[in-house]
Amino acid sequence: MATNEDVLVRIESVEGTACVVRGDDIDTDRIIPARFMKVVTFDDMGRHAFADARKEAKGKHPLDDPRYSGASILVVGKNFGCGSSREHAPQALMRFGFQAFVGASFAEIFAGNCTALGLPCVTLAERDLAKLMDSVELDPAQTVTVDLRAKQVRSRAGEMAAILPDGVRQQLVEGTWDATRVLLEAGDAIERTAASLPYVEMPGR
């Protein structure tokens, strides 16, 4: 095993400038159109993030707005990342430069994929989110902090209560978000569970 305690990466907070992409129900086909998934690695995903939406906006998409250049936090609306389970979507956004997402709500598989990559998805109350979006659009140079320890999002718009499931928060803060190692620690308990099931006949290793 290549992983061990020494390489645990604890995600306690993400700090940087932010970028706002407004709109609800932004699906993963939108984030990364399927034609860019005809590859066997994630290496190239970053430059295709929101490819069609950006083309459609002719340079006016927030990801092409120089005021947001270098942003590490993406602020979004409701049900962000719905649709396909493609991890290519968070991979594309991560490789573009985003390290955390703040929104009204996230689709479940998308949020799970983000956790597996060490990217926090936190939600804010509707009023707080509206304030944060306005504030970042007005002053994109400000520093925004997603603080998982304090469960807060801090910006010029104030200190806001950030919501995320406790288990996910713990995984990120303790650095156990890369689940493989944790799962393998169960050892033979995995085979014991397999043996207790009526359909897993030959649990060969």
Partner: peptide, 14 residues
């Protein structure tokens, strides 16, 4: 599931 979870299942079936 996403690809990192496909990895988890391949490695641990969990």
């Amino acid at each position: 599931i996403g690809t990192s979870q496909v990895r988890d299942v391949l490695a641990s079936q969990c």
